[in-house]
Amino acid sequence: MSKLIILTKSMLKNNIRSFDSYFWAFIFPVVLFVIFVMIFDNINYSEDLSFNSLKAGIVYEKKLTGFGKTIISQMLKHTNFKTENINTLDEALNELKNKKLDIIIYFPDDFSLNLNSSLFGIKQKEANVDIYYVEGRNNSEILKEISKIFFEYSNIEIIKNVKKIKEPEIKKIAIDSKDVFRYRDFLFPGILIMSIMSIGFFSIPYDILFSRDSGINKKMLTTPVNGFTYFLSILLSDLIIVMLSSIFLFLAGIIMHVSSEFFSVRFFLLYLFSIITIFSFGLLITAFSKNISSTMSILNILFQIFMFLGGLYFPVFNIPWAIKWIVYINPITYLVEGMRRTIGMNISPISNAWLIIVPMLWIIMSFMAFSIKYRKVMGYE
């Protein structure tokens, strides 16, 4: 055990000694995450922003009467969004939280009385209207602004010498963060997976192949340290680098206010599962490699394909089937989707079972291939 620890420390120091290794492992993932969040976080990919899709729930605490009924009914007829009458405010709030409505327009029980009294000059009282919306949900905020414009239009239509409809009181509704799409929450697992890939795809194969081609592995056979201990030290040193890189990313996530679900036990288990899957893929490629230069070239191509067709940065399930099949055999697709589902994001049509089965098949296949070719890969024969 002491030999393994000493070798691991030596490999770790060697790997992070150069600025290039430090930059790509620790700095680049954080910088990429911050830049992407700053650029794309205000873009909502999960909602259809066409006016025809917007829907307002109308709640009358008491049925409207007189001119108030005529004015409001005519106003709602000329809207360019859908409306639906809801019996109670509680029922409407529940539908708003479940995304069945985008806003609620609530007319209190004294609305008709106050408006009709003002119109006939009996007494000057403001007719109140409340608008409920969800902060952070694009459709909800857009329809809130549209509704305010319609009420301003109503005020123009009402006779000028009577009291106008009071500007609607805007009320924000607090909902679970799982119900609101935020690009930073979509992106965070993708950047985390990318940082693991940079080690699993490049560092592990390079360290093993360099040791083999330079004869280090054979020389280790003449020392008290056996070859398998040396192999484990390579994996452990790269694992530590991944962990350190992830710590930097989690700190950035805290600063950028990502979902607290990313700090749950379930997410951590999926994170470890992702490390095993990606590391095993690096070993799979190493098992069939002949030299460093050709292997690293192949891995560069595979890295780009797996990264962009794995949905790390953007959804990839609307692409043509000519390349969509790569999405479905790509283990990265399943790993990042599994992480996103811990916060309630269901981006793909893949069932939960396949999110585990497909990466597990890659792990089994990779370890079997590497085990069969272990002695040849390490240069012992």
Rank of each mutant, 00 (worst) to 15 (best):
L299V: 11
G282S: 04
F268E: 03
L269Q: 08
I275D: 07
F279N: 08
S294W: 08
K290R: 15
L270S: 01
F267Q: 05
S289K: 02
T277K: 04
F288K: 14
T295C: 14
F279V: 13
S280Y: 01
I285V: 14
F273V: 07
S293C: 00
M296S: 10
I298F: 13
Q304S: 15
F268H: 06
N291T: 12
I298Q: 06
L284A: 11
G282C: 04
L283S: 04
S294H: 12
S289F: 02
T277I: 10
F267D: 00
S297A: 15
F268N: 07
I301V: 15
T277E: 04
Y271P: 02
S297P: 02
S293R: 15
I278F: 04
L284Y: 12
A287R: 06
S280W: 03
T295G: 05
I301G: 10
I278G: 00
S294F: 07
K290Y: 10
S280M: 06
G282N: 02
F303E: 07
F267H: 02
L284Q: 03
G282K: 03
I298V: 15
S280A: 13
I301W: 14
A287H: 05
N300Y: 07
A287P: 06
F268S: 12
L272Q: 08
F281W: 08
I285R: 03
Y271E: 05
F288E: 05
I285M: 15
S280I: 01
I285D: 00
F267I: 02
T295W: 06
L269C: 03
I275E: 06
L302F: 14
N291Q: 13
K290Q: 11
F273N: 11
L269D: 02
K290P: 04
I278H: 03
I276R: 07
S274W: 09
F273Q: 05
I275A: 10
S280R: 00
F303G: 05
L269E: 07
F288A: 09
S280H: 02
I285Y: 10
L284D: 01
K290S: 14
T286W: 07
N291M: 11
M296A: 10
M296E: 07
F281E: 00
L283M: 13
S297L: 13
I298R: 05
L269A: 08
L299D: 00
L272F: 14
I301Y: 14
L284F: 15
F273K: 11
N300V: 04
F273P: 09
L272W: 08
F281H: 01
M296Y: 05
L272P: 08
F267G: 03
K290W: 04
I285H: 01
N291G: 13
F303M: 14
L284E: 00
A287D: 02
S280G: 05
S289W: 02
I301D: 03
T295Q: 10
S293H: 11
S297Y: 09
K290D: 12
